[in-house]
Design a protein around this nucleic acid. Structure first.
Lengths: 365, 365
DNA sequence: ACAAAAAATGTAATCCATTACATAACTTTG
DNA sequence: CAAAGTTATGTAATGGATTACATTTTTTGT
């Protein structure tokens, strides 16, 4: 780290000189009472147009701005909502966040973010901020059973929405996709291509998307009477990192009787499978098919383009915010479990089982 | 979108029943004055250990939590900082955000995020939140000349730090890398591999990283007496999208006398060049070398691994937060321009000019 | 044991906007 | 033109914590 040219910030001096203009000064300037000023500011109550004009002029002249903490105190609200996620480096969460912003900002709410990094301090933080009235509600992106300790006693007390990953038993609005179905349909799709040995890559966490997809996968394996072996379930680390995906899939690909296809609970993991397969000289999709989940933008940045489930992240974000605002404004709907649709994007990382057929297929698409 | 099982939220009912415990109730319970309770809560002033004990017990018994808006009003602070960026979908910004959080959270500050999407409402928002005392300071990730209108009159009035992209003329603390040098060194490096026709891919924005890299590039082109042609400068869209990168590089690669190397102002754009080259049957790096910027994790997810400049995003985030907190606490340092180091990660997307030599090199590494 | 110094605690003002209620000004109606 | 009804405006309480200053209690020194 290098230090640049010397520039002394005049900040200290300047800061002390800021004169704080309050509502009563505006009132004095306009020759009215504070109540009238407040009424103009809040567009409520009856004010004679000419009075309103005077007030507005005074506001401009004195460059008045509302002191939000004061208003918040009086109104007992904060005008902010909390978004709690494992991390925002994941483009998947970033997209949800975008949706939340687009819905909440126009409604006058600010977004506070907090990355829990998967550890349970999350609950403490969250409750802390709700109790401290720093936020009016929270959207949880990675709720798991582990959160019962802190969440259970507070459900119904504060506006909380579960988005994406969730725990069914917690009675909050939920905006989710049917993860079980993704697992089931992934297998179904691969079976339709002729695969019989299909692996599953999860992650070392209790996220519902991981857990339920595995269940869907297992159900499908049973239903279609496919090879059922513990060796076919592997796990990357809790954060779905590329390296952990490579490490997890390597022994499977080099062992005897490897699978001909795999379903991964995230795109990054799917990319790691494709990468590792290529490293080992295994052709994708001719010899090994890979299905991912999320449809991040990187899924189409190098060949083979990834076949993956597209989840409506942005829309889920918006819907979560919508639900949360309903709770905050005490107008929740009767239906609080909203299941968004997903769709399988068939691209280049999947093909028919058996090389020759596969080649023919991949050439056709 | 489908609606799930009917679950009526009991939220409405429960909410109304929350009894608000105030500091004076705690005082009464503990048999002391509010001042004493406050002193215990803030760990300031002298309080007899046994009194402190009584207060703490009362706090636990009544489940008291501080009303933050009230405290903030009195202390004239918000305990929050604003991070303004074009978007957080970009992993580059997400990483910076992570650094900011890790520094600011332990110091008791919450993080408010706002995606400006590159439009000038940004300034309005930012000033709005500072004036409204909703945040104690702001970190700007995409400051450009366009922001002068709103920013100039407020510099020194509010704690503001420029991170990453910046405008030199705005006298705020800056945490940056020397973008000019990245441009220069990219060319220098490519020249060392024997390249003489080197292109540059920028973006349709005024970000300093785009602008200054182009300047560094041009200077190097002059210094090394290389081919200097307008046709060698191309631009992707303002958001550095993959598709726009593909569109921009296509005519160049298919035109006559194409370059043998290109330097891109972002990794996603570099990946788009590699992609497009491969589509056209141009081998990377044997026939076409590509250098990126940012070193996002996707740079090493498929071959050829991208040669790129690694910027210390996380550390820049931390340092920005550190600087901002100094401003907020009125203890800015004498040096407010902090230049972080970058490093070129030489990987597989660059090679010697001329196929045979290039092959030899790529095999060696 | 008593004055002086130090420590602990309490009282009340303060931060600034909102809003219930009171009052004033203005219309309408018979 | 007065009474009743509307509409506009003002007064003062309120939200819940912090903190300067005042007062009480404890400790120290002789």
């Amino acid at each position: 780290m290098k230090l640049g040219l010397c520039k002394i910030s005049m900040f200290c001096l300047a800061r002390g000189l800021v004169i704080v203009v309050t509502i009563s000064e505006v009132a004095k300037e306009a020759g009215v009472s504070v109540a009238t000023v407040s009424r103009v500011l809040n567009h409520c109550g009856k004010v004679r147009p000419e009075t309103e004009q005077k007030v507005k002029e005074a506001v401009v002249k004195l460059q008045y701005t509302i002191n939000m903490p004061a208003r918040n105190l009086r109104k007992n609200e904060s005008g902010a909502i909390l978004v709690l996620a494992r991390n925002f480096t994941n483009p998947f969460y970033a997209k949800i966040l975008e949706g939340i912003s687009d819905e909440a900002n126009p409604a006058g709410y600010n977004i506070l973010v907090s990355a829990s990094d998967g550890n349970p301090k999350m609950g403490f933080q969250c409750i802390q901020m709700l109790e401290g009235r720093q936020v009016d509600g929270a959207i949880l992106l990675n709720c798991t059973e582990d959160d019962a300790v802190w969440l259970k006693p507070h459900i119904g007390k504060y506006p909380i929405v579960q988005c994406c990953d969730f725990v069914a038993a917690f009675d909050t609005p939920k905006v989710i996709v049917d993860h079980f179905r993704t697992g089931y349909e992934a297998v179904q799709y691969l079976v339709s291509l002729g695969h019989r040995r299909i692996a599953f890559m999860g992650a070392e966490n209790k996220h519902s998307c991981t857990v339920q997809r595995l269940e869907g996968y297992k159900k499908a394996i049973k239903d279609f009477e496919l090879d059922e072996e513990d060796a076919l379930y592997i796990s990357a680390d809790a954060n779905y990192t590329f390296e952990s995906g490579c490490r997890a899939v390597y022994p499977m690909l080099t062992g005897k009787n490897p699978p001909t296809a795999i379903f991964c609970v995230s795109d990054v993991l799917a990319l790691s499978c494709i990468f590792e397969a290529k490293e080992l000289g295994i052709r994708v999709p001719e010899e090994f098919s890979v299905v991912g989940c999320d449809d991040v933008e990187y899924a189409r940045m190098c060949h083979p383009f990834l076949s993956t489930f597209r989840l409506p992240c942005y829309e889920m974000g918006r819907e979560s915010a919508r639900q949360l605002l309903r709770c905050i404004h005490r107008t929740p709907e009767e239906y609080v479990e909203i299941i968004e649709d997903f769709s399988l994007q068939v691209r280049e990382s999947t093909g028919m089982a058996g090389k020759d057929v596969a080649l023919a297929v991949s050439e056709r698409t």
